[in-house]
Design a protein around this nucleic acid. Structure first.
Lengths: 139, 139
DNA sequence: TGCAAATGATATCTATACTTACTATTCCTT
DNA sequence: AAGGAATAGTAAGTATAGATATCATTTGCA
């Protein structure tokens, strides 16, 4: 029995590889952010005015951790956070002009690094893998 | 462009799912440990007398974090850690009798939960996915 | 043989990631 | 309209995860 050959371990390795490639490639392009920060930017870009709980839902994240992620995006000056008038519990999120600019510049970089996350798979195998992955996460 | 449909994000979701299933299923069986703690136990079981740097290598982990993982296993009383006589920088690791017992009891539990990590894939698709994953991590 | 390079481990720092508990606010039902 | 349930967010705690720096020890080479 080899625990290193099981689903759990293989997926952990993939995640490791994925995060590493994301950070290295975006840094090489002159940016400083993590994959989850990008996912949050993307969610806010698609749904301006949304709140943290909605962002967490969209990117399949927990409510507790998203606060810190958004806070770091706010500190970078990419995200604006204001208390909602509709619901004073909630904070409405939007990209700042700087955030808009950064996000637009990031999109092609992030798109291009996807293939490098699975470098030892050919195009057909990669497409096959992604299709199965999509199915596995129920999407 | 939908960042949620890209390789990086799908892999993060898989990792999330994988960790959740591992913890839930092992807890249901009466154990309290994380996937990485199990991987470390497995490595030490396979190579008794090895040191932390070797364990980190075996399970593709970084040297800095493995110290904490092993320390928690030591606190649980599952791993014994002694300064090596060959090389006083290194600490030789081995499973305690309790650790041996726990590991043996864990093996079937961990093996059985693997399929639940990818529940929406049929047997054939799961095998296909794992083969591609193995290839992707260069194994 | 001496000393620089390499190695094992720890410490520190940042950032996920999730759980539980708590506060503030809103919703819903009677 | 009142009050309990539900929801948004934060706080605290534990555990990865990795980068970088430091310390002790060992190795290898001039």
């Amino acid at each position: 029995m080899d625990s290193l050959d099981m689903a759990g371990h293989l997926i952990r390795r993939l995640h490791q590889q994925s995060t590493l490639v994301f950070v290295q490639r975006t840094q090489a392009a002159g940016f400083d952010l993590t994959p989850i920060q990008f996912a949050a930017l993307d969610a806010i870009h698609n749904q301006p005015g949304t709140d943290q709980a909605r962002v967490a839902e969209m990117i399949a994240y927990d409510r507790a951790t998203i606060g810190g992620v958004i806070e770091r995006l706010e500190q970078k000056g990419w995200v604006h956070r204001v208390v909602s008038e509709r619901d004073r519990r909630a904070r409405e999120l939007s990209l700042t002009p700087e955030g808009q600019r950064i996000f637009k510049a990031l999109v092609p970089v992030v798109r291009n690094l996807q293939d490098d996350i699975l470098p030892s798979l050919g195009d057909a195998d990669r497409a096959r893998f992604l299709k199965l992955a999509r199915q596995a996460v129920g999407q």
